[in-house]
Design a protein around this nucleic acid. Structure first.
Lengths: 287, 287
DNA sequence: ACACGTTACGGCAACCGTAAGGATT
DNA sequence: AATCCTTACGGTTGCCGTAACGTGT
């Protein structure tokens, strides 16, 4: 069986280009490092290094092994981190869940005594974190299926149309889709969460909307709408306070109840006893 | 430092629910398994199992560790597989590269003596294989950025319009976009490679095309077009022989030279000496 | 001479099976 | 009494540093 210690030596040799500097880096004797490498070679039945009096060189088999070795050491470090820090490596998309999520996380921490290490970012960033193991559980606005991961719907959140408080629409009873097509809509680019909702919920009229893209967070969208750059459709819970305070207006949109399904994503083989699973279950019931 | 042997014992205990069955599965003595678990516990400074006379139970920390432990053992097996089989775990999207790729792979094998373990599938399947380490290098029709991976353009392949040999268009000099909008186009659903090209290259007219989706491979599209279900846009190299043989027709599409960029994707930290890197370099120069 | 990697050797810790202990049903 | 996990103990193995060796600069 391969051992992490010998792999660490192999990585050091590959990175430093020699036995001696590798040994110095690891605080071992050169003999030990030599032994580690040849141990792996015996285990795998292949030679990893080309030994020449001029120096060492990675053979193809060694180069093949190197990324795997790095992955294993990294996973080991992550495992230690995940177990020792009593926290749950949790992530949430900034465009969705945090408004309703933070109170739930706080309550969960109080009740269980567990800590939630929250990382907030964009949906693709969170996806990358999940895939690389930096986070083990996340609330996301969309998820494309991936082997080894499990996504379940969390809650279906309504979207509202928001405008600046002094927008002409504010004095009208309701807005229809034709009105919307004549205005500028912030956000909603393809590939974003809102973009997906718009395409699914509005149908062909989406193509006639004049979208103003580049607003990659709900905060930016809010500021843009307040500044009169256009209108937008955002999660109702994300603008509740601004609407109450009169900083934003939410005219009624006719014939349309758009909503966004938020997802809880986690590793598929997470045992039910894992803190991450507990948190997911708690969110589910609270949702 | 954690050791793979002790982790293996821990996994067996977690999965079988007891020390004794775990020991039986591993061919060890119960004492050894007990020792392995408490070794991990000492190493991480946490207890992983709740010992009750009624039996063992995973604690939260143990449940947290379990997926990591599984990942490490799996990676170890993959590493052994990758190094011992002298092959390169390569993948190619069936909708793109295989027509032009297979001769190159054959030449590479002849020249280098290395073996290429080719896996052909859809773009999402290949993506999953790369992310999970089952393949270390791939030719794909699209790639969304992912940390730890590197994508470089391989070649820009032209697309051609194909129809059945007895299609009315065959007798015309050229076809324009309005004609296309009046026909049925096979494939091109959003999220597929062809779909992306169509949206990027045709612009708004895409929304007026009547797409017939569900044709998830170039082979299926070819058969559908031959059967007269509609027309399609495919890689020129994928239908060269059929067109030469008169099984398909390729009327000229006016004012439009669509092309699809194929990508070579591989692990970002692959050393230049790795067989996969050699293959990628060979493809690059041959492309 | 100097630097490098390998090999030989010896002390020491770690590994693992056997056997005994404590607790529960 | 039977089953289970744990602890104690001893033989064996493996690990690692020191030292010596061969080779190239």
């Amino acid at each position: 069986m391969l051992s992490l210690g010998t792999l660490r030596s192999f990585i050091a040799v590959a990175e430093t280009g020699g036995i001696r500097p590798a040994a110095r880096r690891l605080g071992l004797s050169p003999a030990a490092v030599t032994d580690h490498v040849s141990q792996i070679e015996r285990e795998l039945g292949t030679t990893l290094l080309l030994r020449r009096p001029q120096g060492l060189h990675l053979l193809p088999s060694g180069a093949t092994l190197l990324p795997f070795a790095r992955t294993m050491l990294e996973t080991s470090a992550r495992a230690r981190e995940a177990v020792t820090s009593n926290g749950i490596a949790f992530a949430a998309s900034s465009n969705t869940g945090i408004y309703m999520l933070l109170p739930l996380l706080a309550a969960f921490e109080r009740e269980t005594g567990l800590r939630v290490d929250l990382w907030v970012g964009s949906n693709p960033e969170i996806r990358a974190r999940l895939l690389s193991g930096l986070s083990v559980c996340a609330v996301m606005e969309w998820w494309t299926p991936e082997t080894g991961f499990e996504a379940r719907p969390w809650r279906k959140e309504p979207l509202v149309l928001i405008t600046a408080p002094d927008h002409p629409w504010v004095r009208r009873e309701q807005i229809n889709l034709e009105d919307l097509a004549a205005e500028t809509v912030l956000g909603g680019e393809p590939g974003s969460g809102t973009g997906r909702i718009l395409r699914a919920g509005l149908g062909e009229i989406v193509e006639r909307l004049s979208l103003r893209t580049g607003f990659n967070s709900t905060e930016a969208v809010k500021q843009g709408v307040r500044a009169g750059l256009g209108v937008s459709l955002v999660l109702a819970s994300a603008v509740r306070e601004e609407i109450a305070a009169g900083m934003l207006a939410a005219p009624r949109l006719e014939d349309l109840s758009l909503s966004k399904t938020l997802w809880i994503v986690m590793l598929a083989d997470t045992p039910a006893e894992a803190p991450a699973a507990l948190l997911a279950g708690r969110l589910k019931t609270a949702g």
